[in-house]
Amino acid sequence: MGATKLSGMQKQVLSLYRGFLRAARSKPATEDRKRIEMIVSTEFRKNSKEVDRKNFQYIEYLLRLGHKQLDQLKSPDMVSISSVKIN
């Protein structure tokens, strides 16, 4: 952040992140909420380190994927999420 100006894509990512946090906030149970926030923030941070910042195609793919997952998470039927580690 700092004085550097964010690119459009960075703003999209941040906006998606904000959307996830808002969706997490709408979940009734605190522990679910905490878990969602944890998983989401881990995922974002992991990708922010691993994905090459010039790899626009992949980032765009991740953005689309994220939006789809966010839509699913937003539905009130969806109570929580979990992540599975596959080695």
């Binding site: 952040m1 964010l6 960075q10 703003k11 941040l14 906006s15 992140y17 904000r18 946090l21 808002r22 906030r25 923030s41 974002f44 941070r45 922010s48």
Partner: peptide, 27 residues
Amino acid sequence: ADSLDTVEIVMGLEEAFDIEMEEDKAQ
């Protein structure tokens, strides 16, 4: 804090003050 942290801070502030911030301004 990186930009993701900043988003988290803004969200935390929204909750603490019970308000909604516009995205452009928050950024």
